[in-house]
């Protein structure tokens, strides 16, 4: 399969008076055209920052460096603002978690979609409006022509999320990043949005990067899975391999924490919590919570290595010493 995007050795750091702690520490990933990559992890593990780094949209105070970013046949080590603009919207788009704050409350919904057509494709006002209504129809807004004239507060959470998807897909990007697209929604609406994403992916030949803390949700959508912990990818591979036979103790722990239907008694739980980025433990960042930690884990951060058809960063699978 053709490689759509590859990112090598991404670091994201925050500038503070006490130093520059790193929130993303050497993430490399590759997206193949047409696949869905699931990126999972708990809050603060760096998954959203990784996504924003693919668009050059990090918040103020954060700095990113990478050895290389490749998109199809183009390649940068330090993309300029113009480089980012050539990617954003046209090639890569993103849908955020908050359908309640991402739309302009005083602008008609249709106008917010039409704006994209005018700015990116230079369409005239009327043509852009028609294209906007068409796009809203495509994402499943009923009576799109009249709904387009309404304001965001007249839309439910699910409809707002559909609108954001319409905005993101207006320029027919190759890659759509969905960052917790259903977290703020009810489970019933979540199912509808996931169905929509699947349909659009098929119809438009999209590549999808789905970021979520919910393993069940990702399992339903993804072809491949990357698990992040404390700014690093700790396990990455085909969905079946990773979920069917997880290797990293963190992946195992996450899976064991999920309440199963029909299960009784206590949940297996991972003790402790995700470390703060300014106080990362020495060695493997997971070792204080890991039941299998041994001496090496406290001394050296493990690298991603090929283990049984996926990549794992854990000393349990050979340290190379």
């Amino acid at each position: 399969m053709e490689t759509l995007l590859s990112l090598e050795n991404l670091h994201v750091s925050f500038h503070t008076p006490q130093g520059d702690p790193e929130a993303v520490r050497g993430v490399s990933l590759e997206l193949r055209a047409g696949e869905t990559l699931g990126l999972v992890g708990e809050s603060g593990c760096g998954k959203s920052l990784t996504a924003l780094s693919l668009l050059g949209l990090l918040p103020p105070g954060a700095t990113q460096t990478q050895d290389r970013l490749r998109f199809l046949d183009r390649e940068w080590d330090r993309p300029t603002p113009e480089d980012w603009r050539s990617l954003r919207g046209r090639e890569i788009s993103i849908v955020f978690q908050e359908p309640f704050t991402s739309l302009n409350p005083v602008m008609r919904v249709g106008e917010q979609v039409a704006e994209v057509f005018r700015l990116h494709q230079g369409m005239a006002r009327q043509a852009a409006w028609a294209a906007s209504v068409e796009m809203l129809k495509k994402v499943g807004i009923p009576e799109a022509a009249s709904r387009a004239r309404q304001y965001p507060h007249q839309f439910s959470g699910g409809m707002r999320q559909r609108t954001l998807i319409a905005i993101a897909l207006a320029c027919k990007p190759r890659l759509l990043i969905a960052d917790e697209p259903t977290t703020a929604l009810d489970v019933t609406v979540q199912a509808q949005i996931l169905k929509l994403l699947k349909r659009l992916k098929r119809e438009m030949g999209l590549t999808l990067m789905l970021i979520s803390h919910d393993l069940g949700l990702v399992a339903q959508m993804a072809d491949r899975l990357a698990v992040m912990y404390a700014g690093e990818i700790v396990e990455m591979g085909d969905l079946q391999a990773v979920l069917g036979d997880p290797k990293h103790p963190y992946t195992r722990g996450l899976l064991a924490c999920l309440p199963r239907l029909g299960a009784q008694g206590r949940l297996a739980s991972l003790e402790g919590q995700v470390p703060e980025i300014s106080y990362l433990p020495y060695g493997c960042a997971f070792h204080p919570r890991c039941a299998h930690a041994f001496k090496l884990c406290r001394r050296r951060d493990p690298e991603l290595k090929e283990v049984e058809g996926r990549r794992v960063a854990c000393h349990l699978y050979g340290s190379g010493e």
Binding site: V187, T188, Q190, A191, L194, D214, L215, G216, L217, A219, Q220, L243, G244, L255, L258, R260, L261
Partner: peptide, 8 residues
Amino acid sequence: AIPPAPGE
């Protein structure tokens, strides 16, 4: 509407 958990 509940997505099946891994293993289900």
